[in-house]
């Protein structure tokens, strides 16, 4: 190869090498996440103070009866075995939560409380403990934000986090997550009826 060609090749390689290693600005960084400054809170469901009677008043609004109407005056010490035994209030309540009975969670007494399996009483604000005694894996996941969900910050040095309560998603009496219609079906280019037929065909 002649000198000209050699120079040409060298020039091309140099241009190539230059193109591959263009200078870039040093990356800047934001401050590192530090010790937690903000709290993690749990959403507290509103306190239940009344129950529906199934009847309406003149304006069509549901008639509700405060809990204390019964549970302060004529509370008996015993809690029924099943919903079938309820004759006055809470009648027709659906219950589908394993093989539990009312007494598995509810305790009579004054005021009515919830009861753990070992006999200790817990206030309704601590209801989660009741769930946790059977649903350990879920509860441990919940404690590490791996179940249950919420809103807010992953970095507690930059903002707080609020978690859902068990009962936000699971009705204690019918805890199974209810089916729902999915949102936002894919409508991207090419995905039409053909894809659906194929996947079900």
């Amino acid at each position: 190869m002649g000198g000209v060609q050699r120079n040409l090749v060298a020039l091309l390689l140099a241009a190539l090498a230059a193109g591959c290693n263009r200078p870039q600005q040093p990356r800047r960084f934001g401050p590192a996440p530090s010790a937690s400054a903000y709290p993690v809170t749990t959403n507290q469901p509103p306190r239940l103070v009344s129950v529906g009677t199934g009847e309406s008043d003149a304006r069509g609004e549901e008639l509700r009866v405060p809990c204390v109407t019964c549970h302060s005056m004529r509370d008996k010490a015993t809690v029924p075995e099943s919903t079938a035994e309820l004759k006055e209030f809470h009648v027709g309540m659906t219950f589908a939560h394993g093989g539990l009975s009312c007494a598995s969670c509810h305790r009579g007494g004054q005021p009515p409380t919830l009861g753990l399996a070992d006999g200790r009483a817990v206030p309704t604000s601590e209801a989660m403990q009741l769930c946790a005694q059977c649903h350990g894996p879920q509860f441990r996941g919940y404690l590490r934000s791996a179940h249950g969900g919420g809103r807010g910050h992953w970095d507690l040095s930059r903002g707080p986090r609020e978690k859902n309560h068990c009962v936000d998603c699971h009705d204690p009496h019918v805890p199974k997550f209810q089916p729902s219609t999915p949102v936002l079906p894919p409508r991207d280019r090419g995905v039409t009826q053909q894809t659906k037929e194929a996947s079900h065909g």
Partner: peptide
């Protein structure tokens, strides 16, 4: 990058996302 969670995480009704 300002410490918040991704939008998909906050929207998840079952908290499946970490």
């Amino acid at each position: 990058r300002v410490g918040r969670n991704p939008a998909c995480l906050e929207a998840c009704p079952t908290g499946a996302r970490v």
